[in-house]
Computed example of a mutant assay.
Amino acid sequence: MGPDTRIPSFVHHRTRLTEGQQHAWDTLWPVYGGDVADVDRLEGLDGPVGPVVLEIGSGNGEATALMAAAEPDRRHVAVEVYEPGLAHLLIRLRELGLENLRLLRGDAVDLLERAVPERSLEGVRIFFPDPWPKRRHHKRRLVQPDFVALAASRLRPGGWLHLATDWQHYADQMLAVCSACPALRPDPAMDPWLPRPDSRPLTKFEQRAVREGRAIRDLRYYA
């Protein structure tokens, strides 16, 4: 899955930051943030030593901050391209006094391919990735066979891949792709979906999806 042939799963739109977000960016990004392109090896990031959980597409970071606060013994790395979301996460990081969370801006696939050693991650989280709902855009979806094989190769033995989506068609694709990966085995609790785990915070986005009639599907697989 080389960078020259891969179709990006995201579109990067530059958006102005609010005054509060800009202040957080100016003061906290140099300490807690960085660009994927500047990371040679994930262990090189400053921060406490511990099992590393990588979150791909942290959005506005609300769930990310709560998970990092609830799991102080884990080292959390959030990768996102949406700068206002990263700035909002920096604000929550400061409010909660988190020291086990680092933020990266850029392409998570590039990070996995180039800077994450094999069998090194405790977990990978992908919550509500862009569903690219139009059929002609399905090829842009992140969860494809090559990506899942790459993510699985970066999990240490017993490490996990946790996905969630509110789009049934994408959930079915996730289930088929992950189940076909020989390096992964499904969580025994999946039948075929995983009951919503308490470890995944309930966000306003998810509450809105439920109000609009979209079921939330969780999947978890182990290396």
Rank of each mutant, 00 (worst) to 15 (best):
A115Y: 06
L104Q: 07
E113N: 06
H88Q: 15
R102W: 09
G97Q: 07
L89I: 09
E99V: 12
R94Y: 01
F128N: 09
E83N: 13
V116T: 00
V81C: 15
V81E: 08
L101F: 11
L103D: 05
L93C: 12
N100M: 11
L104F: 10
H88R: 15
P133D: 01
L93V: 04
R94D: 14
R119I: 04
E83Y: 09
R105T: 02
E99S: 12
F128W: 09
G106K: 07
L89C: 15
L121S: 07
N100P: 11
Y82I: 10
V124D: 02
G85N: 14
R92I: 10
V109N: 00
F128K: 06
R114D: 02
V81H: 13
F127L: 14
L98A: 07
P131I: 03
G85Y: 13
H88M: 13
L89T: 13
E122A: 12
P133I: 01
G97K: 05
G106F: 09
E122K: 03
R102A: 11
F128D: 04
D110M: 10
A115S: 15
P129S: 06
R135E: 11
Y82T: 10
R102G: 08
L89G: 08
P84H: 13
E113K: 03
E99R: 13
P129C: 02
L121I: 12
P131T: 01
L98S: 08
L104W: 06
I91R: 14
R102Y: 09
A87H: 14
R102K: 09
A87R: 14
P131V: 03
L101E: 08
L93D: 06
E122L: 09
